[in-house]
Design a protein around this nucleic acid. Sequence first.
DNA 1: AATGAATGAGGATTCATTCAT
DNA 2: GATGAATGAATCCTCATTCAT
Lengths: 198, 198, 198, 198
Amino acid sequence: MPKVGMEPIRREALVNATISEIGRVGSLDVTVSQIAKRAGMSSALAHHYFGGKDQIFLAAMRHILSVYGAQVRAALLGAKTPRDRVEAIIRANFEAGNFRPEVIAAWLNFYVLSQSMDGARRLLTVYQHRLHSNLVHGLRPILGEDALQDAHDLADMIAAQIDGQFIRHALREETPSGKRATAQVLDFVDAMLKARGN
Amino acid sequence: MPKVGMEPIRREALVNATISEIGRVGSLDVTVSQIAKRAGMSSALAHHYFGGKDQIFLAAMRHILSVYGAQVRAALLGAKTPRDRVEAIIRANFEAGNFRPEVIAAWLNFYVLSQSMDGARRLLTVYQHRLHSNLVHGLRPILGEDALQDAHDLADMIAAQIDGQFIRHALREETPSGKRATAQVLDFVDAMLKARGN
Amino acid sequence: MPKVGMEPIRREALVNATISEIGRVGSLDVTVSQIAKRAGMSSALAHHYFGGKDQIFLAAMRHILSVYGAQVRAALLGAKTPRDRVEAIIRANFEAGNFRPEVIAAWLNFYVLSQSMDGARRLLTVYQHRLHSNLVHGLRPILGEDALQDAHDLADMIAAQIDGQFIRHALREETPSGKRATAQVLDFVDAMLKARGN
Amino acid sequence: MPKVGMEPIRREALVNATISEIGRVGSLDVTVSQIAKRAGMSSALAHHYFGGKDQIFLAAMRHILSVYGAQVRAALLGAKTPRDRVEAIIRANFEAGNFRPEVIAAWLNFYVLSQSMDGARRLLTVYQHRLHSNLVHGLRPILGEDALQDAHDLADMIAAQIDGQFIRHALREETPSGKRATAQVLDFVDAMLKARGN
DNA sequence: AATGAATGAGGATTCATTCAT
DNA sequence: GATGAATGAATCCTCATTCAT
């Protein structure tokens, strides 16, 4: 058994275990012991590496958001047209990595956590802003440069539609279908653009 | 001091206190003592009336949903056309009674609670179904009787948009604007209907 | 079993138990559970009444100091001459209530606690000042009104001698003899006064 | 990096770190990790060299007492008369090496430790006895060979006065003045001897 | 109807200590 | 010689819940 360089391994295991446990229980009422046990270590070690429960939650949240962020960036790389960009962003939200039951459950719980924990709120806000500006960036060329307010409004609505899709799946037992969610949001975007004459 | 007929008064006080406390704290990590204190009684009495914390939460949830249900029903009374019906349903969601910070916070928390508490999930499911069928009922005449699947899809999307509006406001410090939320959802519905040629 | 008005009873029991346990163990490494057990209740109740371990310690310290303060006041009542006053103060320190092994042990531990806990330090400082000014008050008429500095110095030395007597007894197994301690301090005071021509 | 002969260096570093940490915190609630960190090594190594926390404390105590012992011996070398001897012993107590805030704090804490740890008590007792017999040795020629009991009593009182001076300084923020402490104890001794006609 | 009293169960966190490398 | 890794055992504190009055 190797005894050096365990830190990143342990941290990753704990982050994954945290998401799994939150997904399993369906709430943040998860003990450090449960998390540590699932990650295959003692709760003392979890504290040793993260300092406390809050930090563990924060790390798990950061992980989810960074995986998501990476997917968005990757998706944007292949986008040629503004329309492609918007579509890529939307698709990234419902990709396999994000749109799994346990991740959806964790995501919803982190939303709640952000209401009471400053660090979590900051994290979430950053990602919301990024999503928003990415969307606006894609929408402006389509709507016309002078329709800035409209781009912001539409970006808000798309973001709401994405969040809405997530939350709708948080309570379903069935395996969430990223395909259908994507289709609905894209359908929605098309209708909005068409209604605006684009 | 009257000692009789206190029950409904106490229950109501506790339900309101529960929503307030959840709103204040921003999570379900609210103690029975906190709730009872805000309601002006001992925690023992809270237990006496509700039997336990879960029941208190359930009652608060039921209260929120029933106020909401009443508003939908009231709104539907004045609706003449199918379009009116859809609009009425949407408006009801963002009416003053529902769309207050503490209620939004509580609502989000109850969504989470539904992931781990059967009674809560049932309650929520009932209301989601009701919203869905109300929407379908309004949409079918507009979309045409043979577009049933389309009506279901659109109802889903509208519901998602509504949820999305709620969740977007859960983290904002500003007083939520029911007006703007309503406008966005209606804008969205119009676009969808227009895109479908209605 | 009476179920009302328990608070003062419980608090007193806890304070006594705290002193006993500190005396028994000989250090502040005493758990709330140990204290509570000796006081005949659950540790949860101890927390309920005091809020935390620090408050329990503080209450015990306050108790010791206030018993001591009362003894000083009582002793001063019967003092006619300045010399009587000084002697009364000294005697009060070694009276039965204070000069018991467990109280001596607790006293020493509280001295240490005062190095790290602000509340404890304040408490102790107040009593040190009171002792000092009581002594000065008694000494000035004896030493002459213009020998103020001398009175302060002598008061310091008497206080040191008293503390020294306590600490010397903190490690002895034998039952401490208040009589001998008193005699030594008085002998010391007499010598000091005599040396100064009084 | 030399890997041999580290032991004495490490031990000394740990002993000093222990005294510093106890002085800093003001109590024995100091973790081995804190001590080791200040000594510039891992806590595992501290255990390796001392076997356990108790041994570390004991070593630190032994260090303080042996420095003190050396100072007494050195002071006694230059003493010609019995009076000189007594004075030398007293001066040694308040010399720079001992009478520093952190050492005073540690000393007080070790006094407490002696109440619960046998090894510590033995150590302390040995030094108390040595101080006592040194004092008696100096006092007997002064008081007269037949005043043995008186010599013992006076030695006790001097020891108490010294301890009292230490404890009085344990709570002060100001830098302790060895000069003033020495002066007071000597003043006290002079008065006692004078009162006895010497 | 109402509450102060009381507790068992549990959870976050700390820490001395051990061990493999 | 030296340390990061790891944990069991505690300890403080909280809280839902019960009960006697």
